[in-house]
């Protein structure tokens, strides 16, 4: 007998993978119009993402922030909110890491890194929790508020790095003071990949446990599934929504902090490169399942990493991969229309 639980998991997965394949075919057709043979394109995509050790390292490095940013949308979606604020939470997280890293009178590298990461998570968490609170208390639409909060976050960043915390010794680029170099996160031994991807995977696993195996996760599903049933069951909906938003924002904030602590060492425009938006895409692809996020984040990291190779080999703009991402997003949205139709119905008699 086929276990029904595995079936429930199977259909969304098939839909997402199907959407990916359709998007890749469309992208191939699009590039063919530019005179690029599809087979060469696909092989370049593969080599640029997972074909060589260097490209794998690049993919993993890019997948880390995407993965954590995806959780921002994913966790909020579990309580029925459509949050688009990953980008802003990343920026706030990066700023938090810088502020704490610069201010800490500490010399322990490990403790310093950890505190920077925690500060980033806290900043990002509070940022999105704010939107959750507004939603519950004042009825403000969370999709719009988080989208607007992104612009506010970027404006705060620009203000701070062009004056109050600007490092004036850097003349080429406006960036903040740098955190002490001994707070910088090392690479995974033997790889030129920082620990971010492993932290991200760990967070996904923890989140899976939280959602599946705790009473809080169960409450989240009830709130997301039917608010009125949650009210009837006496669940504290406002706390559940605000805490969920905090956790989501914290994941994205952690992504920003990792970018600072492991890559840039300072806050700058480099935090605003669209990881937050790619994260939304990944959350949709994974259909709100944290473990599926790992797979799809790696895939999107790979696509982003192959951009450079496509640029060099076919003389197309780096943004070509953004075209592919957009096509994937459209295909995923369109595939939702097929939900519940591709596998035989499981009606009970």
């Amino acid at each position: 007998m086929l276990d029904l639980r595995s079936q429930e998991w199977l259909e969304p997965f098939l839909l997402s993978v199907g959407a990916l394949i359709v998007a890749l075919l469309l992208f191939g057709a699009f590039m063919m119009l530019q005179g690029i043979p599809p087979l060469e394109l696909y092989s370049a995509l593969y080599i640029g993402s997972f074909g060589t050790r260097i490209s794998i390292e690049n993919s993993l490095t890019l997948a880390a922030p995407i993965l954590l940013a995806a959780l921002c949308t994913l966790i909020a979606a579990r309580v029925g909110l459509l949050v688009m604020g990953g980008e802003g939470a990343i920026v706030l997280g990066g700023l938090g890491a810088v502020l704490v890293g610069v201010a800490l009178p500490l010399s322990s590298p490990l403790l310093g890194s950890l505190l920077c990461l925690l500060a980033g998570a806290l900043f990002g968490g509070l940022w999105i929790a704010m939107a959750g609170g507004l939603k519950r208390v004042r009825g403000v639409n969370e999709t719009i508020s988080t989208l607007l909060l992104n612009y506010i976050a970027i404006a705060i960043l620009n203000h701070l790095i062009s004056g109050p915390i600007r490092d004036f010794s850097q003349t080429l680029k406006a960036q903040s003071w740098s955190i002490p170099s001994y707070f910088m996160m090392p690479n995974i031994p033997g790889w030129s990949v920082h620990w971010g991807i492993l932290i991200g995977i760990l967070v996904c696993v923890l989140l899976h446990v939280l959602l599946r195996h705790t009473t809080f996760g169960f409450s989240m599903d009830v709130v997301g599934g039917n608010n009125r049933a949650a009210q009837m069951a006496g669940l504290p909906i406002t706390s559940i929504v605000v805490i969920s938003c905090f956790l989501g924002g914290a994941a994205a904030g952690l992504a920003g902090a990792i970018e600072v602590v492991a890559v840039h060492g300072a806050a700058s425009e480099s935090l605003v490169v669209g990881f937050g938006y790619t994260g939304i895409l990944v959350a949709f692809l994974a259909r709100q399942k944290p473990l599926a996020v790992i797979f799809f984040a790696l895939l999107m990291g790979g696509i982003a990493a192959s951009g450079g190779l496509l640029q060099r080999r076919f003389d197309v703009p780096y943004a070509a991969t953004a075209v592919l991402q957009g096509m994937i997003f459209l295909c995923v949205l369109a595939s939702s229309a097929l939900s519940g139709r591709i596998l035989p119905e499981r009606k009970s008699k």
Binding site: F218, D221, V222, G225, N226, R228, A229, M232, A233
Partner: peptide, 17 residues
Amino acid sequence: ANSAVRTLSVMENLALR
């Protein structure tokens, strides 16, 4: 509409209380 969650399983709905 009022007291159960259609997207959750029968077993989860039974466990709501």
